[in-house]
């Protein structure tokens, strides 16, 4: 959060209009490492203030655990196996939910995007579902599926299917008609047209959808695990709430943040490899 508020100011500072003189250019080159250093000053200072406030007893550990305490708790939870075990459970839920979402979203988008009948049957319900906040389904899902793995995976799957469907469907429908026409003059069959033109053309949109889906899958999981669960990161955090263990809660938050960051990077790498043909991806052969 802090990092994000600092960035625009520093960018505006380095974007000097006009051609920089030699001296200016030298200053700008040096400004990169010092800028990074300068920008890390305030977060570090904040950590120090936080630690000082905790150590002096100004902030009680029931309100907010100290940074050093969070670190030692993280190490403890890792070595005693609590964190890895819950993390694996959470990962399995998010992973299987996301896998279902990818299969369902891609299948529905292909049906709706490639056939008139499919569009009529699928698109309207999907567009209606889109307006529904998936999290509001939690009580219903608990009633239907109980408190096992099913409601959690179903919630992740439902929430993540929507962006994949919407983006891929849009991608299929916005294929350049000139390319389709070219395919006709080359005598491509319908299957060839889909494989050579439609699917690769819609791939960038599919990946955009996937990126949204990955984000949503974590969001769904957080809620599902905090409402009812006996394992998973979310459960670990709600459990800690009962014992006023803010250190454990903060470790959970940290893990969620890292997971979000990591999965976003995975999708970025996917984009770079699969969309190598785009000049912006550095795809010069």
């Amino acid at each position: 959060m802090l990092d994000m508020t600092v960035r625009p100011r520093s960018e505006a500072g380095t974007a000097t209009p006009g051609t920089p003189t030699r001296a200016e250019a030298g200053r700008l080159r040096r400004a990169v490492p010092t800028g990074l250093l300068r920008r890390s000053v305030s977060p570090l200072l904040l950590l120090l203030v936080w630690q000082a406030a905790s150590s002096s007893g100004l902030v009680s550990p029931q309100t907010l655990a100290s940074p050093s305490r969070i670190l030692s708790t993280a190490v403890g939870l890792t070595t005693d196996g609590t964190l890895p075990r819950n993390l694996l459970v959470s990962l399995a839920r998010a992973g299987s939910g996301l896998a279902i979402a990818v299969v369902a979203g891609v299948a529905l988008a292909l049906l709706a995007g490639l056939s008139r009948l499919g569009e009529e049957a699928i698109d309207a319900p999907m567009q209606m579902l889109r307006t529904l906040p998936a999290l509001a389904l939690v009580p219903l899902f608990i009633l239907w599926f109980g408190i096992g793995e099913l409601p959690k995976i179903a919630l992740v799957a439902l929430g993540s299917t929507i962006p994949i469907y919407l983006n891929l469907y849009k991608g299929i429908r916005s294929i350049d008609p000139k390319l389709l026409e070219m395919g006709r003059t080359l005598g491509l069959s319908r299957a060839q047209t889909i494989r050579q033109i439609v699917l690769p053309g819609a791939l960038p949109d599919l990946l955009t959808g996937l990126r949204f889906s990955v984000g949503i899958s974590w969001l769904m999981l957080v809620v599902a695990e905090q409402v009812n669960a006996n394992s998973g990161i979310g459960h670990m955090m709600t459990d800690a709430e009962d014992f006023l263990r803010t250190d454990v809660i903060l470790v959970g938050l940290l893990v969620y943040a890292l997971l979000g960051l990591l999965s976003d990077q995975v999708v970025r790498v996917l984009e770079r490899t699969l969309l190598a043909w785009r000049p912006s991806q550095g795809g010069r052969a």
């Binding site: 000139k178 390319l179 026409e181 050579q196 690769p200 969309l275 052969a285």
Partner: peptide, 11 residues
């Protein structure tokens, strides 16, 4: 065609 109409995702 006037525009080459190549598939950008195929070499």
């Amino acid at each position: 065609f006037q525009e080459s109409r190549l598939l950008p995702w195929r070499r």
